[in-house]
Design a protein around this nucleic acid. Sequence first.
DNA 1: CCGAATCCGCAGCGATACTG
DNA 2: CAGTATCGCTGCGGATTCGG
Lengths: 109, 109
Amino acid sequence: MAAECPSRDVLRRLTGRWGMLVLRVLSDGPQRFSGLRRQIGGISERMLAQTLQGLEADGMVLRRDFQTVPPHVEYALTPLGHEAATRVDTLLGWIEDTLPQIAQGWAQA
Amino acid sequence: MAAECPSRDVLRRLTGRWGMLVLRVLSDGPQRFSGLRRQIGGISERMLAQTLQGLEADGMVLRRDFQTVPPHVEYALTPLGHEAATRVDTLLGWIEDTLPQIAQGWAQA
DNA sequence: CCGAATCCGCAGCGATACTG
DNA sequence: CAGTATCGCTGCGGATTCGG
């Protein structure tokens, strides 16, 4: 069944705490580490590095290292990453649009 | 930002370990507790109950208690639940279709 | 249904290697 | 010291499982 296979790990990295935030920022264009951290806000250096590595391993993010001595690395979305980003955004957008209806249920509970 | 608001909790319940499995089974029609457990496989009673409560609170699942002495309860998808199910399946389906490409990256790493 | 044991995501603190 | 990217160790809390 789908739950036991690797597709779940991929989904986890996408829907995890920071995955989609990173995808959203990167969908506007390539960024470097510090830039991402600044635009996302609230993410620790460690978590950002970890998240990026996960997405890179899945082929969603392309990491370009300029091999300079003050480290300069750029992160960009791959075509696969763009596809993922749009789909995740679709789901997330629907949830946000539907949130009022969901919250409504909360109220009468 | 979207990450801090309740939409994340909803997304978590949907993409969590069991959420989408439940949605998938229920999209074929109403089921009762034992039926769900049998068709999903590998889920504990506790987790199934917990998952159903979460989805019910979000208005995705409708719980109908027949108030009979041998307890008889049925679970069904609400219209909202159907919408959610299709969207989650879309994302999950895409991941499964794309998994070969993702796994390809794994191989050359 | 309850309680204990366990797993896992997430964050914090600090460290590394190098330059100006 | 300041800045850049990454990594390791540690612990908390919630999620999940297990056993009655």
